[in-house]
């Protein structure tokens, strides 16, 4: 699998993208106070695929991303209307999580839908405590189980080899790229199904960026990944589906290969060729 380039994989799977949809967004409108940041947006996010959000600054990519796990709850004046649901396989039974339901258990939602931010934000604690933070909130684990979980998460996030000798050293002593992978490990450790990443590489140097892109490519066999990026190469390199936004509206969404080579929309064409934005 890892030897195949993403573009080929997505072409092969392009037909069944729709019936494996995990996140359904229908006619979503979102506001900050009186300012409408998202207009009538409908989008389907496929399961176990990487979906990239692209678009010029301020077009609402982060806003949409944060609504998927309700991080906007704490923003005063932020509200949304429309439908945003996530499929949930609860003990073999198909259920739907209505994300915008005001009575939803947000804590449970966020365990299912993890988020990684633009700037690495490890806690000022040890590396171990960073990764164990989420599990300690949600699960009842023995010391040895927790050790195992921490190691597994760090290995998944491809930083284990670099930190295994200083697990109890400060997380802030790591390099930016290592910190970002630590943050991914921290997000993985609670066992999410979806990983939201808001420009995860924008604060990193090219080699760390490459390491994270490889990681994203590895992770998508088990996780549904949504990544916001300003880097067109990155979007084309590591995503299966691409959605292009402009001024709060979805302009075009589809198979990454198609969006980048034969966009249906003129604006998309201009943007992916770097003519504006």
């Amino acid at each position: 699998m890892s030897s195949v380039t993403p573009a080929i994989v997505s072409e092969k799977n392009s037909d069944d993208l729709s019936d494996q949809t995990l996140i359904h967004i229908e006619k979503l409108n979102a506001w900050y106070g009186d300012f409408q940041a998202i207009h009538d947006l409908s989008l389907e996010i496929p399961k176990h695929k990487v979906t990239a959000f692209i678009g010029p600054s301020g077009c609402g990519k982060s806003t949409l991303l944060k609504w998927i796990n309700r991080m906007n709850d704490v923003v005063p004046g932020a509200r949304a209307k429309g439908r945003l649901t996530i499929d949930d396989d609860h003990q073999g039974q198909r259920k739907e999580i209505d994300v915008l339901d005001p009575n939803l258990d947000v804590v449970g939602l966020r365990r299912k839908v993890g988020i990684v931010f633009q700037k690495p934000n490890p806690f000022p604690k040890s590396i171990y405590d960073n990764v164990a933070f989420g599990p300690r909130l949600h699960m009842k684990t023995s010391k040895s189980e927790l050790d195992e979980l921490v190691e597994w998460s760090l290995q998944k996030a491809a930083v284990w080899d670099e930190v295994k000798d200083r697990l109890h050293g400060p997380a802030l002593g790591l390099s930016g790229g290592q910190q970002q992978r630590l943050c991914i490990a921290r997000a993985i450790a609670v066992g999410p199904e979806v990983l939201l990443m808001d420009e995860p590489c924008s604060a990193l140097d090219p080699s760390s960026t490459l390491a994270i892109e490889d990681l994203i490519f590895e992770l998508r066999s088990q996780y549904t990944i949504v990544i916001v990026t300003h880097n067109m190469q990155q979007a084309s390199r590591c995503s299966d589906k691409t959605a292009f936004f402009f001024e709060g509206r979805l302009i075009e969404a589809g198979n990454t290969e198609q969006v980048f080579t034969k966009p249906k929309n003129k604006q998309t064409d201009d943007y992916v060729r770097g003519k504006f934005g």
């Binding site: 449970g108 966020r110 365990r111 934000n121 909130l137 949600h138 609670v190």
Partner: peptide, 22 residues
């Protein structure tokens, strides 16, 4: 930094847990 609170909330901590632990 508010990024620390966001990190904690993003992992599913409640406001109280975020206050206490972060």
């Amino acid at each position: 930094p508010s990024s620390l609170r966001e990190a904690s909330m993003g992992l599913g901590a409640t406001t109280w847990q975020t206050v206490r632990d972060v």
